[in-house]
Write a protein that binds this DNA or RNA. Structure first.
Lengths: 361, 361
DNA sequence: TTGAAAGCGTTACCAT
DNA sequence: ATGGTAACGCTTTCAA
């Protein structure tokens, strides 16, 4: 019994042709078929033609599943995100997806909804599905879970959010510097009493943004009056702004992301504050949100699409080179000045950057 | 040589344990291990315990790849979308993903960027990867490509956008009705000269929205003065609005989606039109965009998240029932009245819906 | 209740 | 240059 007999003829319409079928059809062995299909080894041009003809004739479609089993590569990459509906992440997905597509990979999008349990479940699935690599943009994965991934031979890369203790490359923006830039800009406009609204400070990125912001303020001798934190979305932004303005007199607020800024902006407007006349609002991200609200948001801009694109580029590079490049790419944030910021209301800008002692209102 | 010998002991740290390892460890056969793992067949509670213990001891992780090869199921679903960065689709992805996750499936997000070539490439990949099902939300896939998918035994379902000639279920909103509602609303406000800006009319959904809109206008004896079409994004919205208002006196514009509406709104505001005082703007979708711009957008609302969720529910149902339910779910759109619409400016609303002569406001 | 063995569709190594 | 065949890790009869 020759190897070719191990399976019946592919006559059944529902049964997709395999390399056995095209081997039989073209009168060569499956090994040769495989070689032709993958351009591996050497083969006569005539053989090659025969095989290709059979492939077309039978409408052969390779099974990536079988390839992955035998060849150890799934050509798939998993992406762990907190929320695809957040324009920041949906833009990241676009960048990631474009790069992956152009290099032959597909991406499995995993929305964790900020839920670590769900994240853990996904990580397990991704391991089972033998992803060639995993992008983690949640910032909440326990380091030991990442280590397990590495042990399992899966390449991992972090995106935007650092994770302490994780020995993997990362592509991100300099959050501290971003916060610093924001504060400098507001201080130069004359603001002395500032507030901050941010994502949960359990996230390193949130802490860094606040850290840079606070540092610049302290340097200038101005006051970081109040810090609100703990949310991500528009609702949270409104809630935090309300809480912040209820007890504090600030002339400018820096928010940790665009969604929070939008919420804060809406609340301010509804509460009767003029932006930027009564209060300046400054955001972080530069998603489409910051461009479409009115007033448009001055913000610390990240190259979002590129972040996604570069991350995938590095990850795929690692996968194909077969090793983990312990690199760390930190992109510089940029100031994007729009309409939500301006000088503080009259009477509050009475101090210069140095002296610090103020007596506003 | 027994079957158990076919592979060496899993001593190598980098080598992940397989069912052979746990079979050896627990002193049973791989068949039994498989049964325990899948809860198939009957087994003694003691055997079961032994196996489970070994699973834990060795840190066994099933290979979905092998399962898919042998079991004919990949537990993966592909989703073809024109643009994940469009909030409409990113919300759909959330709904789809939530349902898929809760039922044990993962979703491969394929961004076609409105490019049919890219779409075709993705479809091929999805077939190779043996997706259990595919969701198509682009509305641009040639019907014969869909037929091929079906032939290959892959379940297909359309989402939001119909495709003529495709014999597959669909979950969508009644676009014609939506357009009709929009027109009725604007007409009742007193508008007699209306304009339309929409996605390319090659899309059935765009044609239907326009169709319903035009029909209601005609019924009322008012004028659909001008139709602009051909784009999807914010930029296109601005461009189309500019083109439309350059030569036509309309008091209200209906846009085919929220992105277009945002663009149109921006352009109007920048051109000095007051919205809704000088011109009313009405949109379609009810994405987050319509809630955050100012004025907020009155629109025909779709239950976006549910659209995604229900689609996946039906698809998975079909996959698990093993047959294609030729269903068609058409959800009703709803009017969501916000701030971008109002009565036409004085002097233009001089006709009532029926006779043509009234003096409202 | 449990086990042996035959696939599933590839790849890769080793002969020829 | 080509072909035979053993993996890859699992599911699934069919026997025992």
């Amino acid at each position: 019994m020759t190897e070719t007999d191990r399976r019946g003829v592919c006559s059944n319409a529902a049964m997709k042709p395999t390399i056995y079928d095209i081997a039989r059809e073209s009168g060569v062995s499956i090994a040769t078929v495989s070689n032709v299909l993958n351009n591996t080894g050497r083969m006569g041009p005539e053989t090659r033609r025969k095989v290709l003809r059979a492939v077309n004739a039978l409408g052969y479609q390779r099974s990536s599943i079988a390839t992955a089993l035998a060849g150890k590569k799934s050509w798939s990459i998993g992406a762990l995100l907190p929320d695809v509906n957040n324009p920041y992440f949906s833009e990241i997905v676009r960048g990631a997806e474009d790069e992956a597509f152009s290099r032959g990979y597909s991406v499995l999008v995993c929305n964790t909804d900020h839920d670590v349990e769900r994240e853990r479940a996904y990580l397990r699935t991704l391991r089972h599905k033998q992803m060639d690599g995993i992008v983690i943009a949640t910032g909440t994965t326990p380091a030991d879970q990442i280590a397990e991934l590495l042990t399992a031979g899966i390449h991992v890369i972090l995106l935007a959010r650092e994770i302490e203790g994780a020995q993997v490359p990362i592509v991100m923006v300099d959050n501290y510097q971003g916060g610093y830039l924001a504060a400098r800009f507001l201080l130069e406009l004359g603001h002395r009493n500032l507030g901050f609204i941010g994502e949960p400070l359990t996230l390193r990125s949130a802490r860094d943004r606040l850290g840079g912001f606070a540092a610049a303020i302290e340097e200038a001798g101005a006051a970081l009056q109040v810090v609100g934190e703990g949310g991500f979305g528009i609702e949270a932004g409104a809630r935090l702004a309300a809480g912040l303005l209820a007890h504090h007199r600030v002339t400018a607020i820096f928010t940790g992301n665009d969604q929070l800024a939008v919420g804060a902006l809406q609340w301010c407007l509804e509460a009767g504050f003029q932006v930027p006349h009564d209060i300046s609002l400054m955001s972080f991200d530069d998603t489409v949100f910051s461009r479409i609200v009115r007033p448009s948001l001055t913000c610390v801009a990240q190259p979002i699409y590129d972040l996604g694109r570069q991350t995938l580029g590095m990850l795929i590079g690692a996968i194909e080179a077969g090793e983990q490049p312990a690199r760390r790419v930190v992109l510089a944030p940029e100031l994007m000045i729009r309409d939500s910021t301006g000088p503080p209301p009259d009477g509050t800008a009475s101090n210069d950057l140095k002296s610090g002692g103020d007596s506003n209102e």
